[in-house]
Simulated assay, not measured.
Amino acid sequence: MAQENILETRIDNRLIHGQVGVTWANHLGANLVVVANDKVSTDEVQQSLMDMVLPDVIQARFFSLQKTIDVIHKASPKQKIFLVVKDVHDALTLKEGGVDFDHLNIGNMHYEEGKKQISSTVSVDEKDIAAFKRLAELGVELDLRKVPSDRGQNILDLF
C-alpha cells in the first residue's frame, strides 16, 4: 500500500469516539478507520461500541499490531485510512514494523500515576518521551493537536 492511503495516524487512548469517528474522519476524508490495538482486536463488545460512533459511510477494522503490520500495505487504493493507536509505544511498534507513516497526531494520552501532564489532553512518562524521540529519529513529524482546527505543536518542544 502506498503511504498516501494512510491519511493520518493518531494516538488517542480512547481509540474511536465522537471526536475521532466524526470530526477527524470527516476532516481527513477517510472511509476506513483502522484501530491497531492488541486488546481491542479480540474484544467484540468494544468493537461494537466503537463501530456505533462511525457514520455509515466509514468502515472500521480492528487489528492487532502484528496484523496491521502484515496487511496494511495490501489495502486497496480506494481505502482512505485513518490509523488510530492507543499509545506512542503502539505507534513506534507499527513504524519499526514497516508501516509507512511520516506524520503522527498526538490527540489524547490520559494522566496516570507517574506521568506528567504536558498539555490539557496529554500526559507522558520517560518511556513515552523516549518513544517519541525514537519516532522523530525515524523521520516522523510529531503533531500535538486535539481537533483539526487547533494549531498543531511539535510535542518534542514540550519536554
Rank of each mutant, 00 (worst) to 15 (best):
R14M: 06
R14W: 08
I16N: 03
H17W: 00
H17Q: 06
V20Q: 06
V20L: 03
V22T: 13
V22N: 12
V22F: 06
W24H: 11
W24L: 08
A25Q: 01
N26A: 12
N26Y: 12
H27M: 02
H27Y: 14
L28D: 11
L28Y: 10
G29E: 09
A30C: 01
A30H: 00
L32E: 10
L32F: 07
V34Q: 05
N37L: 06
D38W: 14
D38S: 13
D38N: 15
K39N: 06
K39H: 07
V40M: 04
D43Y: 06
E44R: 15
Q47Y: 10
Q47A: 09
Q47S: 08
Q47E: 09
Q47H: 11
S48D: 12
L49H: 01
L49Q: 05
L49E: 02
M50C: 08
M52Q: 00
M52A: 07
V53T: 15
V53R: 07
L54D: 10
P55G: 06
D56A: 11
A60M: 08
A60S: 15
R61G: 00
R61E: 13
F62Q: 10
L65F: 02
L65Q: 09
T68D: 07
T68G: 06
T68V: 08
I69D: 04
D70L: 00
V71E: 14
I72N: 07
H73R: 10
H73W: 04
K74V: 00
K74D: 10
A75H: 15
S76N: 13
S76E: 10
S76A: 07
K78H: 12
Q79V: 02
L83Q: 05
L83K: 03
L83N: 04
V84H: 11
V84I: 15
V85R: 12
K86P: 00
D87H: 05
V88S: 14
H89L: 14
D90W: 04
A91S: 12
L94M: 12
V99R: 11
D100C: 08
F101K: 08
H103C: 01
H103T: 09
L104N: 09
N105A: 03
I106V: 15
G107R: 06
N108P: 05
M109A: 14
H110P: 05
E112K: 13
E113C: 02
K115P: 08
K115G: 06
S119P: 07
S120G: 04
V122K: 04
V122R: 01
S123N: 01
V124P: 02
D125Q: 12
E126V: 05
E126H: 03
K127G: 03
D128V: 09
A130K: 15
F132E: 01
R134C: 00
L135M: 11
A136T: 05
E137Y: 06
E137P: 04
E137A: 07
E137N: 13
E137T: 13
E137W: 06
L138D: 11
L138M: 14
G139Q: 07
V140T: 13
E141R: 14
D143P: 00
R145K: 15
R145F: 04
K146Y: 06
V147G: 02
P148R: 06
P148K: 05
Q153K: 15
N154P: 01
N154A: 05
N154T: 02
N154D: 15
I155K: 03
L156N: 09
F159S: 07
F159V: 13
